[in-house]
Amino acid sequence: MSPPPASGMSVLKRMLWEENPVFVQILGICSALAVTNLVKNTMVMGVGLIFTTALSSFTVSALRSYTPRRVRMMVQILVIAAYVIMVKIFLDAFMPDISKQLGAYVGLIITNCIVMGRAEGFAASNTPGKSFIDGLGAGIGYTMVLLIIACVREPLGLGTFFGFRIEAIEEWTRWNVMVIAPGGFFMLAIFIWVARYVNEEIDRRARAGNNCDHHEPKKK
């Protein structure tokens, strides 16, 4: 992992792309496969995760100097669980249908490695403000990838988008495989492949550019 960046903007950018939790760190895959067959559910799940990572990172960071080292992980889990249960209570009260469809996955945000990873990996040793942005970035990075996958799976699998029928593909033959778990595996793998290819391409160009400008010897 690269050293913690200095400014808030670079903290955010790092989590969105360079160290994106889903396609670089390969975390949070379970829910990424489970909820991405409907764009609407993905959106709600993403918002729930952004809320949880941002606020739990902030809280863990704010408490970091006063939390005894031996119990720090228990305290992190406690903080995360509290925020997740709040999300669950909120969904039960105001979005009962979505809450029912997401089922166990909202509760399982508690064990989502992204949240715990950011709390332990970043928030435990950085200021609350930066930790909040870091958590926010991790959440948005996760949501972004899930939304892209959902935007492919739902139209291909069900012929709808955000629950609305797409007129242009009225005669669409549904790809059932896109709705079930294997569709999630295929899409996620394809996405990681493309994202890594793009990443390498950017790196290669940057290196090639450097070589031309400074005539540095190529490191092996």
């Binding site: 209570i89 909120f90 039960d92 009260a93 105001f94 009962p96």
Partner: peptide, 8 residues
Amino acid sequence: LIKYKLEN
């Protein structure tokens, strides 16, 4: 919020 949940 429990009253909303019970209503639902």
